[in-house]
Design a protein around this nucleic acid. Sequence first.
DNA 1: ATGTATGCAAAACATTTGCACCTGG
DNA 2: CCAGGTGCAAATGTTTTGCATACAT
Lengths: 145, 145
Amino acid sequence: MEGNDLRKAGLKVTLPRVKILDILEKSGTRHLSAEDIYRRLVDLKEDIGLATVYRVLTQFEAAGLITRHHFADGMAVFELNAGPHHDHILCLDCGRVEEFVDSGIEERQTAVAERHGFAISDHALVIYGHCRKAQCPHRSAPTHE
Amino acid sequence: MEGNDLRKAGLKVTLPRVKILDILEKSGTRHLSAEDIYRRLVDLKEDIGLATVYRVLTQFEAAGLITRHHFADGMAVFELNAGPHHDHILCLDCGRVEEFVDSGIEERQTAVAERHGFAISDHALVIYGHCRKAQCPHRSAPTHE
DNA sequence: ATGTATGCAAAACATTTGCACCTGG
DNA sequence: CCAGGTGCAAATGTTTTGCATACAT
């Protein structure tokens, strides 16, 4: 029961928050936009407004439950913080997003930050490409759904 | 005279395009938003609309003259394509953006793409941090200007 | 000339906010 | 009960588009 995660994060356990967290946890795709989540709520016949979705997502982000990403189209997508840090590789044809970690890249980023006199706080690395896979239909629709 | 760059890019040499390219070339900051450019045009008493700024920037991007970035705040900033590829490190306090290249990171990205079966097309790497420099006043204003 | 580019105003989006009402602890 | 959360509608900020006019070739 995810009420505990919410309590641990210092958030009151309300119906919208539980439902939204549930969607994030159960979603096949790990990266959802506010609209994506709102549409799923509508499908579930939940009476939750889009404004609340944005508010809740912002709170989740502040609480460290989720991370907000801006991929190339500029629209925000949100991802549950499960497991440790990772970066993203995204298919420009089918919108598939895969995750990876490369310790060498991580180390070198720290080195770059030091070299420039920065205390590193975070980073965002997205590789854009074309996945040559059977499932990828070379669609034009770029990002999600 | 930058008219040549425009002609080479297959674009008619018009006053708005020349002026905007000029601003991009002469700007101290290498990363400008559409609004930044529009404000400079207003300062120069040029009668060029914001819509034109967006249209011209989109054409410049399509022609490969500039690159569009989305840093953490989601608003688009544009940068002249001078010199070879590089990534960015950004100060969350003063908004300073510095550039770097790390061949090790580049190589490892190619390796990651191959490992995932992607033909790499592009990538975006931004490191966020705090520059401990005298000039950095720990302001709250995040990005530019 | 003539097709393309521009300015302006209005539209289209994604996201945020104000406010009266509802709800969880 | 009461602070805080929520729905709705309206506001915001950014980017796009429609259309009549102006401009480069």
